[in-house]
């Protein structure tokens, strides 16, 4: 291309770039504004309203009494601790269940892995309310399992329905698809030849898993668990429908405090505390992503 022709084209290209700039900013601006309005502002608002409160004379000042109440109230602490317990147990079960499934899907050959993958992803398309209903019909009192056991003369099971194990089963089932998909994407970065090379130098299957596969997918495990934990800690529907009345997880606890006890201040305090825990878990995710990008 001659210089004259290039010169003729240059302004045109620049002009196109300029005209695209506002469109780009607009596309980014809308979600940023929505997030600021619907997420960031309510968070700031809730934090401020729980700590910047009027005293008996009506003067506003720093006041941490609602937090003091939460951390001194046995019932609130029991609710927080059952939420942490449920989250921890779910995370453990998710890892124990999903890692073998993901490993199988990554390395197995033939048509069967396709069916297993479809089954693993299936819970993603089942609404929580349907899942809770199915759970009650199968594992609830006089549910399908009880009927089957009764038909062969065996005693009824101790149903997990309305016990802390109810939400655990439901939440684990609900979170299997996301966890499997994230682990599977992590396993995609483990090359077949890297595994074969390890086998070649004398590693057995367990050693390959521990020394070659695990270091490569540790980030994915962290990301998968961060995602699941964030969802589980603040879950509402399944703990509300399947969990015990007391102690209860933070989701149902907040809702009840707000609606039934009509105590918006303490509900907001519970929400801020829940947010605090979630943001701590979220930092794991941000740290993993940052570490991944550095690599």
């Amino acid at each position: 291309m001659s210089e004259a022709t290039e010169a003729e084209h240059r302004p045109l290209i620049d002009a196109t770039g300029d005209s695209r700039r506002p469109t780009g900013l607009l596309l980014v601006g809308i979600p940023v504004l929505l997030m600021a309005w619907l997420v960031v502002w309510p968070i700031i608002n809730a934090i401020v309203r729980t700590i910047w409160r009027p005293d008996q004379t009506g003067d506003y000042g720093l006041d941490f009494s609602s937090y003091g109440f939460f951390f001194s109230d046995g019932y609130s602490l029991a609710n927080l601790s059952i939420t942490l317990w449920t989250t921890g147990v779910c995370a453990l079960f998710l890892l124990v269940i999903c890692l073998p499934i993901a490993l199988y899907l990554r390395f197995a050959q033939g048509p069967l892995p396709g069916f297993v993958q479809a089954l693993a992803i299936f819970p993603m398309f089942v609404p929580s309310i349907i899942l809770a209903y199915a759970f009650i019909r199968v594992l609830g009192p006089n549910g399908m399992v009880d009927i089957i056991l009764n038909s062969v003369g065996l005693p009824k099971i101790r149903t997990p329905y309305l016990t802390p194990w109810g939400p655990v089963i439901g939440l684990v089932w609900d979170n299997i698809p996301l966890t499997v998909l994230i682990l599977l994407s992590g396993l995609g970065s483990v090359a077949n030849q890297a595994i074969e090379a390890a086998r070649d130098v004398g590693a057995n299957r367990l050693q390959v898993f521990w020394h070659i596969i695990m270091p490569r997918i540790s980030n994915s495990i962290l990301v998968a668990l961060s995602f699941s934990i964030l969802g589980i800690f603040s879950a509402f529907t399944l703990p509300y429908l399947l969990g015990p009345a007391a102690p209860e997880m933070m989701g149902p606890f907040m809702q009840r405090t707000f609606r039934e006890v009509n105590d918006p201040l303490n509900a907001m305090t519970q929400a801020v505390i829940t947010f605090g825990f979630c943001i701590a878990f979220g930092l794991f995710y941000v740290r993993s992503v940052a570490r991944n990008q550095r690599k």
């Binding site: 090359a191 030849q193 890297a194 074969e196 090379a197 390890a198 086998r199 070649d200 130098v201 004398g202 590693a203 057995n204 070659i212 270091p215 490569r216």
Partner: peptide, 20 residues
């Protein structure tokens, strides 16, 4: 015999080094 039990050493096309 499985690969870990054989007295062979293989060099792969893609190097297959363990990047971690």
């Amino acid at each position: 015999l499985t690969p870990d039990k054989r007295p062979t050493g293989m060099v792969f096309q893609s190097h297959a080094l363990w990047t971690h």
